[in-house]
Computed example of a mutant assay.
Amino acid sequence: MRSEDWQLTEDLDDFLGRVGGFLRAQPVSNIMQLTVAQRLREGRGGGAGAAVFGWLERGGEVVGSFYRLPGRGVGLGPLTPEQADSLAVRLKALGHDLPYVSADQRTAVAFAEAWQRHAGAVSTLRVRLHLYRLGTLTPPQPFPAGRARSVGEEDLGALMDMCRGFAADVGEDVTIDAGSWAGTRFADKSYTFWETPDGAPVSMAGVNPAVAGMAQVDPVYTPAHHRGHGYAAAVSAQVSRAARDAGAQEVVLFTDAANPTSNALYQRIGYEHVTDWAAYDFT
């Protein structure tokens, strides 16, 4: 396989014109590419500079694709080791200096090994995730005391507090305040609080805008002093049901593979494991 077989463009419409059908045919496997493309199309998440997109064809059919946002790493769809190797050769030849790769576990490992061979970079696993899709929703029984409530503009202060807590828990280096909120990845979601009978919000769940008939639950967070009461399961079940009722054909979410509590929680309410996901940093 020749590295030149990879076609690159900075034109999002060109990329989606060539690859959109391929991505939508397997939306769960290509969730990150579909989500990033939608955010860029809406003018969000690009940063300074031009994003780069690419695809690989065989016999006139797309068989692999990737994206790279300015100043960030490379996000890959599922690739074979041979395809990952040819992409690494192509990107290195074009002068790309990649800080990380993010993809399904097998693809991420294959690309990290290829990047080490061709760029001399040492790869370090940053995080491993599980990707789940909703099967048969099984709400917790009984629900904890309280109720689910949609988050409104008047709740922005409490919502930002919870998003800051979530970001700190997962190691995201982001500033979240009234001035920066609109530019964060948290701003484009719809949110639901679980609140106690006295009206205090104790847990929250967000849902990304639907893309290719798929809704992604993200983030889910309960402050540490409210954990252990079933609030996260309750609010997750509520937003999952709402996404289905709104017409989502697939409802998905990512979990930290190192957190057995959250993985068990989502499986209890009906989520099924699809694949592992990983990010490797390069030095």
Score class of each variant (00 low, 15 high):
residue 3 S to E: 15
residue 4 E to S: 15
residue 5 D to Q: 14
residue 12 L to W: 04
residue 12 L to Y: 00
residue 13 D to N: 09
residue 19 V to C: 14
residue 22 F to V: 10
residue 26 Q to H: 13
residue 29 S to Y: 07
residue 31 I to A: 08
residue 32 M to A: 11
residue 34 L to H: 06
residue 35 T to N: 07
residue 36 V to C: 02
residue 39 R to L: 08
residue 42 E to S: 12
residue 44 R to K: 14
residue 48 A to Y: 06
residue 48 A to S: 14
residue 49 G to A: 07
residue 63 V to L: 06
residue 66 F to M: 08
residue 68 R to P: 00
residue 68 R to N: 09
residue 78 P to L: 09
residue 79 L to S: 02
residue 80 T to H: 03
residue 81 P to L: 00
residue 81 P to D: 01
residue 82 E to L: 13
residue 88 A to H: 08
residue 93 A to F: 05
residue 97 D to H: 13
residue 100 Y to M: 12
residue 105 Q to P: 01
residue 110 A to R: 10
residue 115 W to G: 00
residue 128 R to S: 09
residue 132 Y to S: 10
residue 134 L to I: 09
residue 137 L to K: 01
residue 140 P to A: 14
residue 140 P to V: 12
residue 142 P to H: 08
residue 142 P to M: 08
residue 147 R to S: 13
residue 149 R to T: 10
residue 160 M to V: 02
residue 164 R to F: 07
residue 166 F to N: 11
residue 166 F to A: 03
residue 167 A to G: 05
residue 171 G to K: 11
residue 175 T to C: 04
residue 178 A to K: 11
residue 181 W to Y: 15
residue 183 G to L: 01
residue 184 T to C: 03
residue 188 D to P: 03
residue 192 T to K: 00
residue 197 P to R: 08
residue 198 D to L: 12
residue 204 M to W: 05
residue 205 A to E: 05
residue 206 G to L: 04
residue 209 P to Y: 01
residue 209 P to E: 07
residue 213 G to D: 11
residue 219 P to K: 00
residue 223 P to F: 04
residue 228 G to F: 05
residue 231 Y to S: 08
residue 231 Y to Q: 09
residue 234 A to Q: 10
residue 237 A to S: 15
residue 247 G to V: 11
residue 250 E to C: 04
residue 250 E to G: 04
residue 252 V to L: 02
residue 256 D to L: 15
residue 259 N to G: 04
residue 262 S to L: 11
residue 263 N to L: 11
residue 268 R to S: 15
residue 270 G to D: 07
residue 273 H to P: 12
residue 278 A to N: 08
residue 282 F to M: 04
